[in-house]
Structures are given as C-alpha cells and as structure tokens.
Design a binder for these strands. Structure first.
Lengths: 215, 215
DNA sequence: CGCGATTCGCTACGGCTCGTAGCGTAAGGG
DNA sequence: CCCTTACGCTACGAGCCGTAGCGAATCGCG
C-alpha cells in the first residue's frame, strides 16, 4: 500500500537502493509546485498534471514517489507543520498559549496550508485510512506543543498535577477554534483576536465562578 | 448568477410562474438522494449523475434547480442545520451551553452532515463567493443560538451586560472545537466529552485565577 | 376548452482529471 | 563496465461536470 521509497514520514534514513538514485531537487521542486498551485487555485487547482508541469518533471515521477494526490498533499502539509515551535520560555501559561495560538494562526494564514488541510480533512470524512494517516502524520505530532506547555506550567507551579489539563481537549479547542475562525473569515487572525481568545482559554466564559450549582 | 426559481434560501413565497410547475416531490427526492450519497460515499461520492439516478429524475432536472454541485450541497446542509434549537429553558448558562454542544455534536455525528460541510468549506478556501454563501446561508444563521443563550444569561443575572460575551468568538470556540473533535475521531461525541468541554468553556484552563500578572 | 409556457426525461457531447502502461533513454553504484 | 533504477514521453481507460437539443408531458390562464 505504500512505497518505502518516498521520504514522507521523515522517518529513518534514506534507504539505499541499487540503481539510479532519485533526484532530490525534483522532490523539492514537486513539493514547491504543489504548494504554489494550492495557494493559487485551491484544492481543485492541485492537479497532478499541473504539478508535474510546474515542477518541470513528468507525471510519472510524481506517482513514483506518492501513490495519490492525497499522499502528495500530506507530504506538503506535514513539512510545513513540522516547523511549529514554542517560543523559548514564556513567563507564564498565558504567554505560552498566546504564543502557540499566534504561530498556528500564522501558519493557517497561508492559503496553501488551509487549502491542503481542509481538502484532506474533507476527503477523509468517508475514508478511514486517509483519516488515520492525517491524524498520525499531521495532527497528532503537533500535540507535543500542548504537552510541552503543560509541563512548563507544572514546573512553574501554575497547576498542581499535569493530569489536570487534558491534552486532547485543549488541542481540540485551540486548533479547532483557530481553524474555524480563519476559514470563515479568510483573513489572518488579528492580534487583538489572538489576545481575546487566549484570555478566554485561560479564564473561561464567567471570569469569577461564584454560581454554586446547587440543586 | 442565480435562478430565483429554486427555493434554497427558504426566503419569500414560491414565485408564481406561468408554465408547468416544478415537482415538489422531485425536490425532496433529490435532496434525500444527495444526503444518502454523501453518507455512503463521502464528498467524492456526491456526483450529479448518481443523485439524479437515485432520485429517479434526469440530470437536467438537478441543474434546473441548482447551478452546481455546491449549490445542491448547500441546500441539503442548510435544511438540516435549520432544525437546530435551544432546549426550552435551562436553569443556568452552563446547562444552555451543554445543551447546544450536545445538539450540534449530534448533528455532526451524521456522516452526510460532516461530509457536506467539510467538502464545502474545503472548496471555499479559494472561492470567495462560495465562502460568502456558506457564511450567509449556513453558518451565520446558527449564531442565533449564541445570541439567545446570552440573552437568557443576562436575564438570569449571570452576566451584567450582554456585551460581555463576544458572540463571534464563542461561536468559533463551540463550533470549531466540536467540528475538530468529531472530524478527527469520526465517532459521535460521548456524553462525558460534552460535559468536559462545557466545563472548560465556563471555567477556563485555570479555575482559580491567582497568578497576579505583575511585571 | 385550448393555447402558450415551462418542466421533464433522454441522449450525446466537450473538457477535464486521475492513475496506469509501455517504451527508450539517462544516471549512478558495485 | 554492467546492472539496476529513475526519468521523460505519449497514450489510454474510466469517471465526472455542466451544457445542448429534442420530443413529450403538465399546468395556468384567457
């Protein structure tokens, strides 16, 4: 189901093969062309023929590396998401959250990013195998950011036990909200929006929780 | 750009025309067929030819009502989302939120719903006109739920001024988080997840905000 | 009642995309 | 140096979108 040839997952060293090696420049040219077409023409604008033409290679060369348009898009997206980092060290949890929100929003501000991501997710709604690959190669790796932020908060004493923060839930909230906001406005998130949202994440809807929910 | 014939927006009375009237049963059959195909084969499974065949009509009949696959999908989705309601009256804000989260999650649990929604959003990333239509006919109408919940909270005295709650932000958070969660797990949201998320929305990450953010 | 207007089903089509196959050629490794 | 593999090219089958043209059916209105 899968060629061990392409270096999509970025796992393991490039396997040594016997004959003529693959062109590394072609790899870069293809991924660049794919992102460029995604930015210009959206998910529908990403056609294998056009990618090949813009990259200056034959269509066969694409299919020798990736088995489908989905595989190619995953590779292009994963490479971009892999660059996400947390700033060196923030003063408190709030600063760390604001930082990651800002960086994630900046990434989604790039049209090729949101286009590929949504195209993949859309197709994955009826393709369990594709959804699994997206989760494993695109989404789940980013949870490291939440885990790291939580560890910092614990080290600072802001939370008593790491288990107090549910990583999956926090990730759903941050990623989901930013995606929803950016996709429907189609403009980069403003700085005030980022701060507004961050405040909410830390504080919640009702700043002072007095309401004793008695019977 | 748009036939005033189809009753998509559900706005205004059915315009009287002169010749043979359109078959209302065909309308229902088409939308049902579309939803059925979406549930079975995902966004890619929604083909105009198959919809026509399953609905027992000619492909021409589809295009006479909707100008494109996107228009048809919007009509199918809007009809389903229009059924969203708030429960009659909850005891407090938390109950109202939990209620709307549960109902929205239930709707997204239906495969035809998430499939159509994501397919449309994906295509809209590079189609401003389509994005605008989705916002106006699908997304924005649901904000009434947030507005209503906020009014209730104000009437109960849980918040001092309605402006204290940013409708757009709250909508992004609730809709975005639920969508993100359901799409990546592909399973209906559990009851404990709904409660967990609701608690977060009301309380925030740090239940007691001690950290005096001094210099 | 009948006439004009419109819908409906059918078939066919042009243009596009995906992904594959076959072939001769280029390039590097043991 | 030769074997193995990558590469480019062309062609192809299958599928889908959206449109066109036709005769037949169906309703409103005068």
């Amino acid at each position: 189901m899968y060629d061990e040839s392409a270096e999509d997952g970025a796992d393991g060293p490039p396997i040594q093969r016997k004959g003529r090696p693959r062109s590394a420049t072609a790899d870069d040219a293809i991924l660049d062309a794919a992102r460029s077409l995604l930015a210009d023409g959206g998910w529908a604008g990403l056609t294998m023929g056009d990618v090949a033409a813009r990259a200056g290679v034959a269509k066969t060369t694409l299919y020798r590396r990736w088995h489908s348009k989905h595989d190619l898009a995953i590779a292009a997206v994963a490479e971009m998401l892999g660059t996400l980092r947390l700033s060196d060290r923030g003063p408190d949890l709030r600063a760390d959250i604001e930082d990651v929100v800002r960086r994630f929003a900046a990434l989604l501000g790039r049209p090729e990013m949101r286009t590929a991501l949504m195209g993949l997710v859309a197709d994955s709604t009826s393709d369990p195998a594709l959804r699994r690959r997206i989760r494993e190669e695109v989404v789940d790796p980013q949870k490291r950011l939440v885990v790291e932020g939580r560890a910092r908060a614990h080290a600072r004493g802001e939370i008593t036990t790491p288990a107090a923060l549910d990583v999956d839930l926090i990730f759903d909230i941050i990623a989901g909200t930013v995606v929803h906001h950016i996709l429907l406005t189609a403009e980069p998130a403003t700085d005030t929006w980022v701060q507004h949202f961050t405040t909410f994440v830390v504080t919640g809807l009702l700043p002072h929780p007095p309401t004793p929910t008695g019977t």
